[in-house]
Structures are given as structure tokens and as C-alpha cells.
Design a binder for these strands. Structure first.
Lengths: 203, 203
DNA sequence: ATTTAGTTTAACCAAATGGTTAACAAAGGT
DNA sequence: ACCTTTGTTAACCATTTGGTTAAACTAAAT
């Protein structure tokens, strides 16, 4: 993991990232973040006024890592089939490097759904429009079986994201160890796309 | 919602359920639970010794609602195809009545993966064995395309559970309102099964 | 009627927590 | 050199929080 910067602000942000993503907003302690950053607790408040603001900074940074991944599938120029293949492969690789990310985003979003409105404005927030038209066209052409873009999108995200979020549950039920589970994830990099395409393509 | 019982203990458990499932272990406050149960805070500790124990009671109760749903798909005698159809339909109906349940279980499991070991012992904890053999047999027979039972299981759970957990995210990106989102969920009761079956069945 | 056991409450407590303050150090401009 | 701004810290503070206590109430048993 290459630390982006060694300014104090970056050290704080990194430490906060770790703590918040492991413990969530409510479980995180400012003191723990300070310790992990190797600084005084008052300095946290000097750089980021409050826990809430520090949390928002972390959340926005996290989401700004995820957003481009989503945009890739939505606003690309490639075919639906290629999008599914690329997204599944890249996403699973990407998240394997940031395993806390999906659970963090989704948990905190459930804790406070309204908070999302704050973020929707600035950078390239993912929008479905283009993907939607593409799917509708392909369905009309008879390339794809009839399916709403929203449903297909939900399915793609679900199949790729859920294994990371549901990992403890799945590991328990399927009774596999860490190593085997990771092997399953590796396998999914290609299998998920095949699964989806088999489900939607006419022949 | 028919309250199961009006004994104090049940009132506490109900209140704790609401608060814990809304705010999580860390975000929940004993005082809030007491208020919601309409009793004194000390009484919480009289019935359940600590916050931790009260939480565990709530978690176990919640999981004991989910477990039979999972067992249905795992230990049933019906065909793989029927299992997928029944599970998808029933699960989405069931969760629509308990919308906080999946997020609660999964979030808390991620917060403390070890905790699950406590629960694994007692009642019918879901096991994959039977379903696994069934899938392997069907693959050998050529009824199903080659797929590991673990992967298929993950896919089924992902497609059914994720929309509830990822609701805030999905609603934002697809830009649909509450009503439309619920309509999509309703549609999924049958569409998810079709999607899966199209993906795995040979023809 | 009195004891006894279980139930319920108000008041209390120690620890933890987010946040502040005031003093001090470093750096930069003049 | 001197002063102003910015960065950093230890000590402190008010509030919140999970948990306790001791007393009061209730109802059944003796």
C-alpha cells in the first residue's frame, strides 16, 4: 500500500480511513484515530473540526474510489456484454485490495440514507441513463431477453459486491476457510460475467 | 405487526430489536431502548445483564428468523429449479416485512465475524452439504452447466439479499423513488429465479 | 398479618468520549 | 531581531453512557 502523502493531514485521513472502515462511524474513537496517526487528539480537531466532518471526508474519499468503477459500466462506449465482463473482472480485483470498502459504504449509507444527498452534487456521480438506453436498444434488437436496465444493473452489482459484504455469513454456511473463499472470489472474476451473460443473452 | 407477547421481557426484546436493528450495536443506547419499551433503564439490566447480552439475544432471535429461510433452500427435497423459484419468491416477501433484518445481520457479522461461532452450535444452523450434492449430481447429468454449489449459492443469496442491503445506493444511482423501487422488488420475486435458471440450465 | 421472593424505580457512579483551551514551538515575513 | 501566523501538545471540561445500588412496591406463601 503506497501511502499517498506524508503530510499530517494525509496521515490523519489514512488513520481515520482505517478506523472508520473497520469500526464504522459509531464504533470509531477519535483517540484511536489519533493514536493510529501518531499525533495528539486535539490535532484531529485542528484539521477536521469534528468527528462528523472527519467522517464525511473519509466517506467521500472512499466513494470517490468506487464511483469511477461504477461509471465504467455505465458510461463506457463498449457493448453491454463487454461492460459486464470488464466490470466483473476489474471490480473484484479492485475490491480485493480494499476489502473494507463495500461494507463501509453500504453500512453507513443504511445508517443515514439522507447523507448521500450531500455527495450527489460534486464529481461524476454515477448515472444510469446511458446504460439504460443501451439495454433498451439491445432488448428491442432481440440481442437480450427482455429485462429492465435497473434490474440488470442491480443484478450485476449484487453478484459482484455481495460476496465481499456477506463474506462472514457465506464462509460460515458454506464452511470454507479463508483460502478457499479467496479462491472462489478469484474464480468469480470470470464466472460472474459468464453467469450474467448466459442469463440475459438470447440465442 | 402483532406483538408476540406483553410480558416485560418481550417488550424489552421488541424495543431492543427496533433500536439495535436501526442503529446497530455501537449506535444503540440503553436509555433509548428503555424509553421505547416504556420502562426504567435499570430494568433492562435486571432482565438482560448487559448491553452485550441483550444484543446477543436480539441477534440470535433475528438470525433464527433467517435460518429457516436458508434451510428451505438447502435441505428441501425439491429440485434445484424449484428451490430457486420458491426461495426467491418467499425470501423477498419475507424480507419486505422485516426490511432491517439483512443489513443488521450482515453489518454486525462484519463488525465481529468471530461472534458467529457462538451461534453456530444450537438450532438448525444452515449447512450446504445436501444442496451441494444435488448440484453436483445435476451437473453430472448435464441438467446444469458446470458450476460449483458454493458459487451458485452465493449467486442466489446475492441476487435476493443485496437489493435490500444496497437499497440507498441503488436508489440513488438508478434515481428511482421509493414506490418505483418497491415495484422493482415486487418484480424480482419471479424475475430473479428466471434469471438464475436461464444462467445455469443447459438446453 | 407477616414474611418472603420477585419486580420496578429514582438516584447515583465511574469511565469514556468528543471537544476546548491555553500555552508553547516553528516558520515566515518585515 | 521582532512579530504574526500556523502547527502541536498536555491538561482540562461537560456530557453521555453502561452499569449499580438501595429502597420501595407487589403479590403470593406461611
Amino acid at each position: 500500500m503506497k501511502e499517498t502523502d506524508h503530510t499530517i493531514e494525509a496521515k490523519i485521513l489514512n488513520a481515520a480511513e482505517n478506523v472508520f472502515q473497520r469500526k464504522g462511524m459509531d464504533g470509531a474513537r477519535m483517540q484511536e484515530i489519533a493514536n493510529e496517526a501518531g499525533i495528539n487528539k486535539a490535532l484531529l480537531h485542528y484539521y477536521f473540526r469534528s468527528k462528523q466532518l472527519l467522517f464525511e471526508a473519509v466517506f467521500k474519499k472512499a466513494f470517490s474510489l468506487l464511483a469511477p468503477q461504477l461509471n465504467k459500466i455505465l458510461n463506457d462506449d463498449s457493448s453491454v456484454e463487454d461492460k459486464i465482463k470488464n466490470f466483473s473482472f476489474n471490480y473484484i480485483s479492485f475490491i480485493s485490495e480494499h476489502p473494507y470498502l463495500p461494507n463501509f459504504i453500504i453500512s453507513e449509507l443504511n445508517r443515514n440514507p439522507n447523507f448521500f444527498l450531500t455527495i450527489k452534487e460534486p464529481h461524476g456521480f454515477p448515472r444510469l441513463d446511458k446504460f439504460k438506453k443501451q439495454v433498451e436498444t439491445d432488448v428491442e434488437k432481440g440481442i437480450l431477453k427482455p429485462i429492465k436496465a435497473e434490474q440488470l444493473f442491480m443484478n450485476i452489482i449484487a453478484l459482484n459486491v455481495f460476496p465481499f459484504i456477506g463474506k462472514p455469513l457465506i464462509k460460515s454456511i458454506t464452511n470454507v476457510d479463508e483460502e478457499t473463499f479467496n479462491a472462489l472470489l478469484e474464480e468469480r472474476k470470470t464466472q460472474v460475467a459468464t453467469f450474467i451473460i448466459d442469463a440475459i443473452k438470447t440465442r
